[in-house]
Nucleic acid binder design. Structure first.
Lengths: 191, 191
DNA sequence: CGTTTGCTTGAATTCTGTCAAAGCAGGTGG
DNA sequence: CCACCTGCTTTGACAGAATTCAAGCAAACG
């Protein structure tokens, strides 16, 4: 079964039929990215959302002083893109790039809307995905405003252990809102 | 027109018909809360989500050291509750209480699901609401990990000026992830 | 009234960031 | 094979930011 098909089934209350999946698949295009290539640059409009078949990506923001702040990390079976730009057709304030060579499947907003109205199962999927995202970001905010650097790192490590292997520490540090030096020191403390 | 009806219309691509709205309304129950009353306590399952007709509420988390951390602030035409507990039927880690006397409309998860499958317009509304929430939390995370206390406060003040009038400063400080003393000092600096 | 609640201020402390230097792997080209 | 990058991590010294603890004051409340 196609990777996206089983991914969708994991969310749906009823499995997605083969015909439905063919319709869904026909709305996607394939794309590959080499490590360090951009998927989205600041100022662009995010025309596509990417489903990651293989690889790892990050979304980050560059502030006035030219510093990068990693906002999101993605690996297989996650979605990469800037929703605000995607749905509002606004220039994005984020960069999205590949941290490893990537295989992606891209969808436009028009296709997303069409699929939603055409296939109740796709609609349901999106609702659940948003729900899950909402819950995860809620947790992240709770952790960010409540905890010290050490606790945040430990939470992250226990929540997303595979990310520790996939992303360099300066990127994880930035995701946690601390410097790479602080992360290095925090890691050398015993838990 | 009912406040909830015009609120829903503001989200929908087509207005919600009177019949549809009567169906929607029939799934809600009314509730009032006095200032300081709990809507949800830690350990409870969040059986209802609340649409706020009037009043102000907050969601917060109490850490191991007994410190409160405000995760969300709500006023009229916002939704209060813990989504993770609501959809997963898990005990909540949050408290939700009233910062002012409140008038609420409550809905259960079963009703939400029923309305979703019954009324495409309600489904669409929920998708848009989740989308908007997602965008707002993305912005909040960006601001929290990227900026100093002063900048975060200024961003907050320009984004939600009405909140400054409605919530005491120690609650806003906690929402921003800083202490009330730091907020007080930051406020006395010129912008 | 006295009590509570919210806001401010000060001084000492802790945490985190900044800047600079050094080490270490992996990859490349000579 | 070795020298030299480059990307990534660690360490130290110092500066700056935010927290903690304590005290004081004003407004709101019962």
């Amino acid at each position: 079964m196609h990777q996206l098909h089983s991914y969708l089934n994991a969310y749906a209350s009823n499995p997605v039929t083969d015909e439905d999946f063919e319709i869904i698949k026909s709305h996607f295009t394939n794309k590959t990215l080499r490590k360090r290539q951009y998927f989205l640059e600041e100022g662009e409009i995010c025309k596509h959302f990417a489903y990651i078949i293989k690889g790892a990506m990050r979304k980050y923001h560059v502030d006035d002083q030219g510093k990068e702040h990693v906002v999101d990390l993605y690996i297989e079976n996650w979605w990469a893109g800037d929703l605000e730009s995607f749905v509002m057709l606004k220039p994005s304030i984020y960069y999205v790039d590949a941290c490893e060579d990537c295989e992606l499947m891209l969808i436009t907003n028009e296709s997303k809307i069409k699929l939603c109205s055409q296939l109740p199962s796709f609609n349901q999927f999106l609702l659940k995905l948003d729900e899950r995202n909402h819950i995860a970001t809620q947790r992240r905010i709770t952790s960010t405003i409540s905890s010290s650097a050490k606790v945040r790192y430990d939470d992250f490590a226990s929540c997303y252990p595979e990310f520790l292997q996939r992303f360099p520490q300066h990127i994880i540090a930035s995701y946690l809102g601390i410097t790479k030096e602080t992360l290095s020191r925090v890691r050398s403390q015993v838990s």
